[in-house]
Design a protein around this nucleic acid. Sequence first.
DNA 1: CTACTTTATAAAGCTGTTTTAGTAAAGTGT
DNA 2: ACACTTTACTAAAACAGCTTTATAAAGTAG
Lengths: 373, 373
Amino acid sequence: MKTETMDSRRMRLHNSEQVLRIVRDLGPLSRTEIGRQSRLSAPTVAAVIAELLRVRMVEESGEGKSTGGRRPQLVSFNAKFGAVVSANIGATTIRLVLADMNGEWIARRVLPVGDDTRPEPLIARVADAIKEMQATELGAGIPVLSTIVGAPGMTDMTRGVVLEAANLEGWVDVPARDMLERALGVPVTVDNDVNLSAIGEHWRGARRDMKSFVFVLLATGLGAGIVLEGKIHRGNRWYAGEISRLNVDFREWDVDFGAAGYLESYAGEEPPKSAPRSPRRHHGPLDDETLVRLGVAIANIAVIIDPEAIVLGGRVAVSHPEMRERLFEVASRVAPNCPEIGITELGEDAPLYGGVKLALDHVDELLPRYLVD
Amino acid sequence: MKTETMDSRRMRLHNSEQVLRIVRDLGPLSRTEIGRQSRLSAPTVAAVIAELLRVRMVEESGEGKSTGGRRPQLVSFNAKFGAVVSANIGATTIRLVLADMNGEWIARRVLPVGDDTRPEPLIARVADAIKEMQATELGAGIPVLSTIVGAPGMTDMTRGVVLEAANLEGWVDVPARDMLERALGVPVTVDNDVNLSAIGEHWRGARRDMKSFVFVLLATGLGAGIVLEGKIHRGNRWYAGEISRLNVDFREWDVDFGAAGYLESYAGEEPPKSAPRSPRRHHGPLDDETLVRLGVAIANIAVIIDPEAIVLGGRVAVSHPEMRERLFEVASRVAPNCPEIGITELGEDAPLYGGVKLALDHVDELLPRYLVD
DNA sequence: CTACTTTATAAAGCTGTTTTAGTAAAGTGT
DNA sequence: ACACTTTACTAAAACAGCTTTATAAAGTAG
């Protein structure tokens, strides 16, 4: 029971949000057309638009074509009302993007993580890169309203702590959010890169308009991002989708993690070791047994979640797209409901798109503040 | 973007719903206390309550104790405003419940499914039982506002069709909703019994107040009901949680369903067959290999979903609660995040509770209609 | 030029909310 | 018993935001 009661003030706020959303999503519109879309009367639309113009959330954008009467004065969403930063720390590269309120990229940076991947120096490197990008690329008077940083490991979003990132040195329980906020001086949100990729792919990539889908990352690490009802599912302990721990060989339930039996031991780029290893690293060539294991794992995901689609992403998926057929053959034999299996459309930029989307959603929640001011 | 714009009329409707919810959830309250809870002013609360009294959704219920001033006149939710019916068709028994608007049971019926389990006669039997219960037990002037029927198989809720119920004869693509609506003359909702059990267990059983959990049914059939963010997850094709198809032995990915390799072949009550069979039947004794397979399957569920808890239900779980320890041992070895594994608190009535909850939620959505009338 | 259409604003009225003020009914203290 | 305080509720007035109706402005079509 989260909704609150309503009075005149909240009524206006509510209607302003609706109008703003309509203008943003449906492009430049006349006041009359906004009235039709929102079912608000013309005078109300006019008053709301006047308010939105005052706080610069929308702007006049010329006249439209007449359709037999007075020409409409178009109103459009002001994409320069603010900006968002989306950064992603990968196993090998750091990627940054500065985007406007429409989610369009203003600037982009790619730099190597460098030799020293320990928390402090790496986070300092990220913060410096963000500061440089903002200083160079951000127009005067445009505030950064939200900053999202993706990390290659399980992340506790409420505390902003990267619980474990096996591909980076010493990344266990790193309070990344606090460190970044101290360096940047603005609120920061930290999330898992696989989740961000799933959000990105859902928003701008292969699976727009789908209610549910699963993004499967095949790269240095294995992971899955689960989107249900249009929202990412992170699980009770931020563990959802950690499919490196899936077991498709029950006889080996009692072996140590990293050894045979675990999916991660079979699908990857490095030679296998027998000793226990940390998660999110996988090894061995992409031979048929590996594909069958992966296919069965995907089938199990399909059986449990029953998503609208499954999308393969990450370096391995991009360089071996042909694996899709075999995976589907196996998975659809095991799971009669196995959905289509697609390949990422955003490639390694997927988490950046996801970060932008998350940031924009975040700004949406903050909008009331700017409206009352 | 589902929310609509607001005017005075909607404002009042919105506030009425909030007040009603407060009265229902927090019990008999004075108008003043409702004002405190809702943050509405005293005159507004008085007006809203007057309206709710008029349509009999709430009723005056005497005076409360003074706390140093005039005694409060208490207002309480009218549980007799209407009633709901929850029915469940099992493999062996039909269960019915009539409940008031607080979800308290007014009456209950249990009858065998009988020898003829084909769709028409069985549904007629259910409809007759419902009619008898209503005629005998329902007070005059109390309308049935929602009827939910659970079926032991995959169900398309939007069409009201039971896609497949292997334990009943000839139940393939049965338009159960339409058949029941024709017999009863009121709107009916049909759902899968495992999903209903999960909802019930979440609402009144083992896992109240949990945001996410998975209910695992171990009975004549195998299945799982997945509750996420307090809502049941049914999947894109109503297939979510059909864990009889989980595969924990990748070498047998290519064998026919029902043969070795599939979970369902190993956890059950009847002797195994080698020929392909329909889903949701399982066989074989509860030997340790079966438990290990089941444990690994539960681990895989935990890895993918990361729920707050897993609850075992169904006849087998009730009669062999001791299996929990071994299952947890296996599952927690495979999945480090494996949550506690509990046993159902509602037993075979779980789907009935879930049906009542679903029905009450359904009525909630219809409330505005009764308020405008 | 006239008739009609479309867009936008102005004036008036309606609904529902809050604030303010007041009444009712109880408890508290001397 | 009496005055005073506390709490519950209601009545009246003021306020805010919405809609309807009317009007102005600016275009198209014949």
